[in-house]
């Protein structure tokens, strides 16, 4: 195995296909630990992981915390509402203060795209991007790849449709990159108002109707309507119309390939982008995505916490 050559994980854009596969393989091994009676190994004993979440999150933060604890690292959680950023501290000052406490890994979620890159330049700790603005969410893409690989046996050669608010979705961006690197064909379906300019350059096919996008797709990934980022931008007339044309309801589901699996990064707006019957149905692998999230994050902490990568 070639050593992992990165000091930080800031985005899928920095990873090669081989490195992604290396992370997925490690993740499968680490998932086995979650099945044991004693769900803990001593590997990262004495390492400190700071989860700095300056934007709301339960799934990702809990997943990172559990991943750290199963590897025996000490995990400290800082959330937006309890951090000094509410008192006006700048991100740089926050980062420097955290660095002064000598953490080994800082996991950062931030509303500003590029925030993890910024602090990576100012701290010695390894930085993991847990979602930055509308830029990237690499660990979500990795866990999506892990889930697809488990259910379909491969990623290479599959057709994957990602539907919904692509413009505001860092998940979509990271997924397009990761799936593309692994050899999948990615289709994006969204109203034109929700497709960023130049998205085709990432190598995905763009559809402005959902039916042809999900027709024949092996995997359909629904994205959340991000109400907190829309703030009255008027990107679609109303939720009901959006749901009818770009939501995966029971009528739309008749276009699905018989063995297509359904994914969603969560949290789900039930009844808007995804019908509850489908979210809880046999095609849904949504909870499996959450399970794989722990494995993928354990793999990354293992690869990055030692600080042994060349730099």
């Amino acid at each position: 195995m070639t050593p992992f050559a990165h000091r930080h994980l800031l985005g899928i854009a920095d990873l090669s296909a081989n490195e992604i596969v290396q992370i997925l393989d490690l993740s499968d091994t680490f998932l086995e630990i979650s099945e044991r009676a004693i769900k803990k190994v001593p590997t990262l004993r004495g390492k400190t992981v700071i989860n700095l979440f300056l934007e709301a999150s339960t799934r990702t933060r809990t997943s990172f915390e559990i991943a750290a604890k199963r590897l025996s690292a000490d995990a400290v959680n800082i959330s937006g509402s309890t951090s000094s950023t509410t008192k006006g501290e700048t991100l740089l000052d926050t980062a420097r203060n955290l660095q002064a406490m000598r953490p080994d890994v800082i996991v950062l979620r931030h509303t500003a795209s590029g925030a993890p890159h910024f602090i990576a330049a100012h701290v010695d700790a390894a930085v993991i991007n847990a979602g930055d603005g509308t830029h990237e969410h690499p660990t979500q893409a990795l866990l999506d790849c892990a889930t697809i690989r488990k259910h379909k046996g491969r990623v290479d050669g599959l057709t994957i449709a990602i539907c919904g608010d692509i413009a505001h979705s860092r998940v979509a961006r990271s997924d397009v990159l990761a799936l593309g690197k692994l050899g999948a064909k990615v289709r994006l379906a969204a109203p034109r108002t929700m497709l960023p300019i130049g998205i085709e350059t990432l190598g995905a096919e763009v559809y402005d109707r959902m039916e042809p996008a999900i027709e024949g797709a092996d995997v359909v990934m629904m994205l959340r309507i991000q109400k907190e980022r829309l703030d009255g931008a008027g990107l679609f007339p109303n939720t009901r119309e959006y749901s009818r044309y770009f939501g995966l309801g029971l009528r739309m589901a008749t276009h699905l390939k018989p063995d297509a699996i359904l994914m969603h990064p969560g949290p789900i707006n039930r009844g808007i982008e995804l019908d509850p019957a489908l979210a809880d149905g046999t095609r849904s692998v949504i909870l499996d995505q959450v399970t794989h999230g722990v494995g993928v994050r354990m793999a990354l902490l293992y690869l990055l916490a030692g600080g042994s990568a060349e730099n």
């Binding site: 195995m1 070639t2 050593p3 992992f4 490690l26 590997t43 293992y302």
Partner: peptide, 19 residues
């Protein structure tokens, strides 16, 4: 692998096998 006492001694990360 995950129980080694030299895992962060600066050597390349060893491959983790299954138990």
């Amino acid at each position: 692998t995950l129980y080694r006492d030299d895992i962060f001694e600066g050597l390349p990360k060893p491959e983790v096998g299954s138990t």
